[in-house]
Simulated scan of single mutants.
Amino acid sequence: MQENARKKKRRLVKGMIYTLLIAMAVVCFIPFFMMIINATRSNEAILAGFSLMPGAALAENYAVLKDYVNIWSGFKNSLIVSVLVTVLSGYFSAMTAYGFAYYEFKGKNVLFIFMLVMMMVPGQLGLIGFYELSKTLGILDSFIPLIIPSIASPFVVFFLRQYIQTTLHPSLIEAARIDGAGEFKIFHIVAVPIMLPAIATMSIFTFIGSWNNYLMPLVLLFSPEKYTLPVLMGFLKGSQVAENLGSLYLGIAISVVPIMIAFLFLSKYIVNSISAGSVKE
């Protein structure tokens, strides 16, 4: 009798938890849903009030948006920069983290502490110096200063180092060396597969950070055909597009699609990477 009562209580608690989680998911989804709905409505309909039904002004809103900015050019530029930043940062940060975790070299601790200190320094503080350096090197108004510096990501290195130390046992590396594998081969066939959940997690945040980066492209890019999507979206303020809320919502909706896709395909790795190493034998 008591066992049945305990089972009923557990089912009740589980049902309440699931209900709460579903309610929270709905609350989080509502802003995105309203953004998509308002992208299809006219300016007058949006000002008239809230509605769950899509409108019929999508083509008109897109025409207004396209007449003012080349949003697909900005989309392409942002995609190129964000993908390259994500790939390069993930690969070289993983290699650096592996080196800090399993190699001994002079000044290792000093370099790691310096890297931790750099995590606390806002990137905006070095913006003027970075601008002058880019100007001296002749790489202004190009994607190079937006992509290359992102290879050095202290936070990603720190996160991957902590992850790999809890998941990759040194005996695996020694076994690979005994089998005759070189150091680069060990990194690619032993370390990288184990680090994939953490790399995927960091790739999500790196991609989102690069996609939403507004200040650096605004300062370093001058040609309109090279502007990234956040810069183009910033130009919509005070323009005729801002007077058409439907067009503004449509532009925002287009800008968040890659972020939603990234979360859709990579979010499952977040739990794996966070929980890794939580249980030790």
Rank of each mutant, 00 (worst) to 15 (best):
A23M: 14
M24Y: 05
A25M: 15
A25T: 15
V26I: 11
V26R: 01
V27S: 01
V27D: 02
F29W: 11
F29E: 10
P31I: 13
F33Y: 13
M34G: 08
I37M: 08
I37G: 07
I37W: 02
N38V: 06
N38C: 11
S42V: 02
S42L: 09
E44H: 00
E44Y: 00
E44L: 12
A45M: 14
A45H: 10
L47C: 00
L47T: 02
A48N: 10
F50H: 05
F50I: 00
M53N: 01
M53T: 01
G55P: 00
G55M: 06
L58Y: 07
L58M: 13
A59F: 01
E60Y: 00
N61F: 06
Y62E: 07
Y62N: 02
V64N: 02
L65A: 00
K66D: 12
D67S: 05
Y68C: 00
Y68V: 11
Y68R: 08
S73W: 13
S73A: 15
S73P: 15
F75V: 10
K76Q: 12
K76C: 11
N77H: 08
N77P: 05
S78R: 09
I80V: 15
S82F: 04
V83C: 07
L84H: 00
V85W: 01
V85D: 00
T86G: 14
T86W: 15
V87M: 01
V87I: 09
L88G: 12
S89A: 13
S89E: 12
G90D: 03
Y91H: 04
F92P: 13
S93Y: 03
A94V: 10
A94W: 09
M95A: 14
T96I: 08
A97P: 14
Y98T: 12
G99E: 11
F100W: 01
A101V: 14
A101P: 15
Y102R: 15
Y103W: 09
E104R: 10
K106L: 12
K108M: 14
N109M: 10
V110T: 14
L111N: 04
L111T: 05
I113D: 02
F114H: 01
F114Q: 04
F114N: 04
M118T: 09
M119G: 04
M119L: 09
M119W: 03
M120A: 07
M120T: 01
M120N: 06
M120R: 08
G123W: 02
Q124L: 05
Q124D: 05
L125A: 05
L127M: 14
L127C: 06
G129D: 09
F130G: 11
F130Y: 09
F130D: 02
F130P: 02
E132Y: 14
K135C: 07
K135F: 11
T136L: 15
T136H: 15
T136S: 15
L137H: 02
L137A: 13
L137Y: 03
G138D: 08
G138E: 08
L140Y: 02
D141I: 05
S142D: 08
F143V: 03
P145D: 01
P145C: 14
I148G: 04
I148Q: 06
A152K: 13
S153W: 06
